[in-house]
């Protein structure tokens, strides 16, 4: 690989933030490296400084406390797969982790990195959106927490100020009896970029849908919540016509494009198919 950058490997978060802030827009944080180094090699990214976060202690790990799951930003995709807590509280996240790239990438790619890379096809993001996850950002002036669904501002752009890092990802443990699932439609089963990703989270209370969250990947400039579809189901009985209307709404509110993997037309149709399928599965499971 060739690139003209300096590399700093700070030992503390404060040093990292300082180094990134000083570097401004041309400074890039490095976690697992599975996106950043690919982009540097292909000259899509030409940083002057790379700040490797790998030596900062305490950034990796999964805690469940007080009805809340919290991930350290450097928690890897493999960490998610190995965690009993995640298996118990976030099955959709496990499903997406299982089909996330290949083993070596899963061993290094981090949750924060997947969120921060801003790819519409970032596979962990739809399940996290469906869990109503929040991200904590830390910069020179301190920390702030915002909803993941408010994090993205456009294609590959987000709320982070220069120097700010994602320092935690958290979500409330879903209520008992709620259901979560993720489906990745791709051109092959293993190690593929997603054509359409759909995550659904919902519960059933007295025969009605509650806490409905539907998140979509690869069908808009950023991973997105299908709010209209959610609204059509929230508080309603999940009868087939209702589910079909919600699925159609999800297909209408996304904005997929044509690329080498599929056309926008196909993607839109698949959103409808998969949203209906996942909601139906949830209802049948519940």
């Amino acid at each position: 690989m060739y690139g003209e950058f300096d590399l700093t490997i700070p030992k503390t978060l404060q040093e990292a933030v300082k180094s990134l802030t000083a570097g401004g827009k041309r400074a890039v944080p490095l976690a697992g490296g599975t996106n950043v180094l690919v982009d540097v090699r292909s000259q899509r990214l030409a940083p002057e400084r790379i700040v490797d976060l790998g030596r900062i202690g305490g950034l990796r790990g999964i805690t469940v406390d007080g009805g809340r799951v919290t991930l350290g930003p450097r928690t890897t995709v493999s960490d998610l797969l190995a965690s009993e807590e995640i298996a118990a509280t976030a099955p959709a996240l496990v499903e997406s982790a299982r089909v996330f790239a290949g083993q070596m990438v899963r061993n290094t790619a981090t949750v924060a990195g997947n969120i921060a890379c801003g790819s519409p096809a970032a596979d962990l993001v739809p399940p996290l959106l469906a869990l109503d996850a929040e991200v904590t950002l830390t910069g020179t002036t301190g920390s702030r927490t915002l909803a993941l669904c408010d994090f993205y501002t456009g294609y590959k752009s987000d709320q982070r100020a220069p120097g700010e890092l994602i320092t935690a990802i958290g979500w409330p443990v879903p209520a008992k009896g709620s259901f979560g699932s993720f489906y990745k439609l791709a051109r092959r089963k293993g190690d593929a970029i997603t054509v359409v990703g759909v995550a659904v989270g919902l519960g059933l209370k007295g025969g009605r849908c509650v806490g409905v969250r539907i998140a979509l990947g690869s069908v808009a400039p950023t991973p997105m919540r299908a709010r209209k579809a959610e609204g059509l189901l929230e508080g309603e009985a999940p009868v087939p016509e209702r589910i079909a209307r919600a699925a159609l709404a999800a297909a209408q509110e996304c904005s997929p494009i044509d690329d080498v993997r599929a056309t926008g037309e196909y993607r839109r149709k698949m959103v409808e198919v998969l949203v209906a399928r996942l909601v139906n599965n949830a209802v049948q499971t519940g």
């Binding site: 690989m1 590399l7 490997i9 490095l30 697992g32 490296g33 599975t34 180094l37 690919v38 790379i50 490797d52 790998g54 070596m104 990438v105 290094t108």
Partner: peptide, 9 residues
């Protein structure tokens, strides 16, 4: 993947 790891890291 050693191609996605910086040697200094």
């Amino acid at each position: 993947d050693s191609c996605l790891t910086l040697a200094q890291s």
